[in-house]
Design a protein around this nucleic acid. Structure first.
Length: 187
DNA sequence: CTTGGGATGGTCT
DNA sequence: GACCATCCCAAGG
């Protein structure tokens, strides 16, 4: 399956968030492979987006959002969890990233369950921190180039069907921006 | 089914 | 010192 090239990510963050639906995220740990189809994303932009980590200025935490597109922005939140984003923006703005919120498991479901300490696949990867747990993504992947890497990358996937746009989850500002995108799973 | 609170610590003001 | 781009479980209807 073909790897998404850097230029895939060099468009408006909101556009890339929609286009990532249906794409495949792949994680290799040693000889084992975990993968899944992206089903929910959120766009976070720069100075026009009060809900974004990059809204105010560049800091130690958010600096990846200002770096080259196609890299990973991983942050630690609520004292225990990581969330995984892909840096994406057009050339007119300084920062932007797409949060990957949910996937449909493909390969390595057993490994995901083990990583999440679960006995079944219920609610396995339907949330941003559940995804990073299942895929063993941590701060060590901060800034990783997803277009040139063996252990974590994104490829072409399936045709995305209908897209549902909603307010983003877990924020209190900019609720008028419908930048949460979900792909309906029926064929 | 829905609601509410606890866990837990880095980051920013 | 407050705030989190969260998750999980227990209690109530």
């Amino acid at each position: 399956m073909s790897l998404l090239p850097r230029k895939f990510y060099s468009h408006d963050t909101v556009i890339v968030a929609k286009e990532l639906l249906g794409k495949k995220i792949v994680r290799k740990i040693g000889a084992q492979t975990i993968s899944g189809i992206i089903t929910e994303t959120e766009a976070y932009r720069h100075s026009d987006d009060p809900a974004s980590h990059a809204y105010r200025k560049k800091t130690e935490r958010n600096k990846a959002m200002f770096e080259e597109v196609g890299k990973a922005y991983v942050y630690f939140t609520y004292g225990m969890y990581f969330c995984f984003n892909v840096v994406a923006r057009n050339q007119k703005v300084e920062a932007g990233a797409v949060l990957i919120r949910a996937i449909q498991p493909e390969k390595g479901k057993e490994i995901m369950m083990k990583n999440r300490d679960k006995k079944n696949d219920k609610d396995l990867v339907n949330g941003p921190a559940k995804l990073t747990q299942a895929f063993a993504i941590t701060k060590k992947h901060y800034g990783l180039d997803l277009t040139n890497n063996q252990e974590l990358y994104i490829t072409e996937g399936i045709q995305s069907g209908k897209i549902i746009a909603s307010p983003r989850i877990g924020i209190k500002t900019a609720l008028d921006k419908l930048w949460n995108f979900k792909m309906s799973l029926d064929t």
